[in-house]
Design a protein around this nucleic acid. Structure first.
Length: 666
DNA sequence: CACTACACATGCACG
DNA sequence: ATGTGTAGTG
């Protein structure tokens, strides 16, 4: 049955979905049916006879990519093995897998995440005799990222970090490892410096789409521009008002740049909102109109009426949690809402703990997104580190992680000696150790040498088996037994074997996941490299078990793209939103903070409750808290304000104090 | 020389 | 709560 685009879409969506040639800029407001339009656009292209292999659609998260693939498959009923629908980073990995040898890396390269990166920086600092109190590694990592992606250059104040940067880059090369920024920058390098690579991608991808365009970085923009240089069939979809990732390099000015680079573009605005009531939308419009750097647009909705927004002033964060849980219970009971109809949004992750406690105390089922991802857990990272060393023995960071996990009698002194040899010869640790086996004058004790040989033997034995690509999960299980990881956990948590058991269970779950992936018939290329690349790209918001029947607790950032019948926005306070640190860093961030508030409001379909605490405990200290200045930018008639109770007599204060104390005690 | 226990500081806004 | 650095032990 052919698609009837005109029937399925509104007039603007229809033009957006049916215009497939030439550059196209789509400004899609919150809740305007953007994803649906994209799905139909892809389906329409396929129906027009464009081969799957010519289409590439780039998204921001794996989750979005997965959902879109599923929906296109559903709509077209086609198998989509040749359609490229992935994140920029996953596409980058794909490019590197095929062409990285041009850049002096081997195909079995490791991908370093933020924590690997920081370990490497520490290692580099050690070698340059820089101590931890001289540099902030976290900050340095961010500076290096900005340098690498071309967001900033070497200014005088950071010039002293230059040797460290060079050393960092050299180490990556020796370890045959790339960091997250390299996943974008190295493909750009390949496209720019190797004409045959550029030609290959030009002839392959004739139709390019980019979703969440407002969140693309300068580097990603360059990549996408390179890809579309020849065909000029480039469609970008975004909303400048929802650009909230500038700290990760996102630059909504790419929208302006696009208009310059593609003057022949067609521009379409999707302004009908299908999500929220008038009240909510008017509040959002009122707020965002205070931003100066934006494309003018006016969202409208056909959903009339609705209720006013409500603002409460709880005494402190414990009362805030009480208020929210009470309200949820009441609404579930009286108005037959389900738990999954509620979203509780916060500006920072640290605010979730108290709210979580409140939900727990009231037996309200909930799920938190964010926090540590499964793959970031220590015990999982240990197993992954073994696999990474097996896949790429030159990967020093992961080798250092596993060489003494569990303890095998290879201590500081021995390692220090090997490190200095490795550094001198510009070898990886693994090759240094391997070479040491034959050396008669090795400057290490016989015992240490024996231990090292045993370790190398272990890696080699498992490497051989894993690289066959058969029964990899089973082999991993055997490895975990062989090193007696269970004993290691027990010893590490000698006071609390519950923790040890829990962690061991996680390891089991990880291997089961690996096994399922390995045996998936849709998986065309089950080998250790593709698996490691895949899990390196998984981020925290990617768990797709969208559990029904649970209240959703998350940061505003994590809520982008989601919607809830009822939204609670907690901590609507002066130093939290706009976040003090953000504005302090750069006053221009104020507009981004406002966009963040805008995103929060527009998640709500029917009702928005906001809470602003009078006092809040931040790291031991109780601080006074004022309401967020953004509240005044929402038209007053849209908000119902519940003033705090004032002039408490001393007795009441004492009672409150006691109540607070007893709460904190549990 | 490896390993343990203990003191001590940090907690890194958002992925 | 967590990691990191250090002094003491076998």
């Amino acid at each position: 049955m052919p698609l009837d685009l005109q029937q399925e879409l509104n007039p603007e969506q229809y033009i957006a979905a049916s215009t497939i040639n030439g550059p196209l800029l789509i400004i899609a407001g919150a809740g305007s049916g953007k994803t649906r339009m994209i799905i139909f656009r892809i389906a329409h292209m396929l129906e027009q006879g464009i081969p799957q292999s010519s289409i590439i659609a780039l998204t921001f998260t794996n989750k979005a990519a997965r959902e879109m693939t599923a929906r296109v498959r559903e709509l077209t009923g086609k198998r989509l093995s040749n359609l490229t629908l992935s994140t920029f980073h996953a596409f980058g990995v794909q490019v590197l897998r095929s062409h990285i040898q041009h850049l002096g890396f081997k195909k079995n390269f490791s991908i370093y995440d933020q924590s690997d990166k920081i370990s490497l920086l520490k290692e580099v600092a050690r070698e340059l005799n820089i101590t931890a109190d001289q540099v902030d590694f976290y900050e340095t990592a961010n500076i290096f990222s900005a340098i690498k992606t071309g967001r900033s250059g070497w200014t005088r104040e950071i010039e002293s970090l230059k040797p460290m940067y060079q050393e960092y880059q050299e180490h990556l090369q020796v370890y045959n490892a790339v960091d997250f920024d390299d996943l974008i920058m190295l493909p750009i390098k390949l496209l720019e410096e190797h004409p045959e690579v550029l030609e290959y991608y030009h002839s392959r991808f004739r139709y390019i789409m980019v979703d969440e365009f407002q969140d693309t970085s300068l580097a990603q923009y360059r990549m996408m521009k390179l890809l579309s240089a020849e065909s000029r069939n480039i469609c970008v979809v975004g909303d400048d008002d929802q650009s909230i990732y500038s700290w990760r390099g996102a630059n909504y000015l790419n929208i302006v740049q696009f208009e310059r680079d593609f003057p022949e573009r067609i521009e379409i605005k999707l302004e009908q909102n299908y999500r929220s009531t008038r009240h909510i939308l008017d509040a959002a419009n009122g707020l965002i109109s205070h931003n100066e750097n934006r494309k003018t647009k006016k969202l409208w909705t056909g959903i009339e009426g609705g209720k006013a927004l409500e603002l409460y002033y709880p005494e402190d964060e414990l009362r805030e949690a009480d208020f929210i849980t009470e309200m949820i219970k009441t609404l579930v009971m009286r108005e037959k809402y389900r738990y999954h109809d509620f979203g509780i949004l916060v500006r920072t992750n640290s605010l979730t703990a108290v709210l979580e406690n409140g939900l727990l105390a009231e037996n309200i089922p909930y799920r938190v997104s964010g926090g540590q991802s499964f793959f970031q857990r220590k015990e999982i990272k240990d197993v992954i580190a073994y696999l990474k060393v097996i896949a790429n023995p030159d990967d020093d960071m992961n080798l250092l992680r596993v060489i003494n996990t569990p303890r095998r009698g290879i201590g500081k002194t021995t390692l220090q000696k090997i490190r200095s040899i490795a550094e001198e010869k510009k070898y990886s640790l693994y090759s240094t150790i391997s070479a040491l086996r034959w050396a008669t004058d090795a400057p290490i004790t016989a015992k240490a040498k024996e231990n090292l040989e045993e370790f190398i033997g272990l890696v080699e034995y498992y490497r051989e088996r894993i690289l066959t690509g058969k029964k990899m999960a089973e082999t991993t299980r055997s490895l975990i037994n062989r090193i007696d990881y269970w004993a290691h956990l027990l010893q590490e948590h000698s006071t609390n074997d519950k923790v040890a058991r829990w962690k061991y269970k996680n390891v089991g779950t990880f291997i089961d996941l690996f096994e399922r992936w390995e045996n998936d018939p849709d998986n065309l290329d089950p080998n250790i490299y593709t698996y490691l690349n895949r899990i390196s790209l998984i981020t925290r918001d990617d768990d797709d078990q969208d559990e029904k029947g649970k209240v959703n607790l998350m940061t505003i950032h994590a809520s982008k793209g989601l919607e809830f019948e009822i939204v609670f926005l907690a901590g609507v306070e002066a130093h939290l939103i706009p976040h003090a640190r953000s504005v302090e860093e750069d006053p221009n961030n104020l507009e981004e903070e406002r966009r963040l508030f805008y995103v929060a409001i527009t998640r709500a379909k029917q009702k928005l409750y906001m809470t602003s605490c009078l006092t809040r405990r931040v790291m031991r200290e109780i601080t006074e808290s004022g309401p967020s200045p953004f509240l005044q930018e929402i038209p007053a008639e849209l908000i119902e304000i519940h003033q705090p109770e004032e002039d408490l007599d001393p007795e009441e204060v004492a009672d409150m104090f006691a109540a607070m104390k007893s709460k904190m005690g549990k």
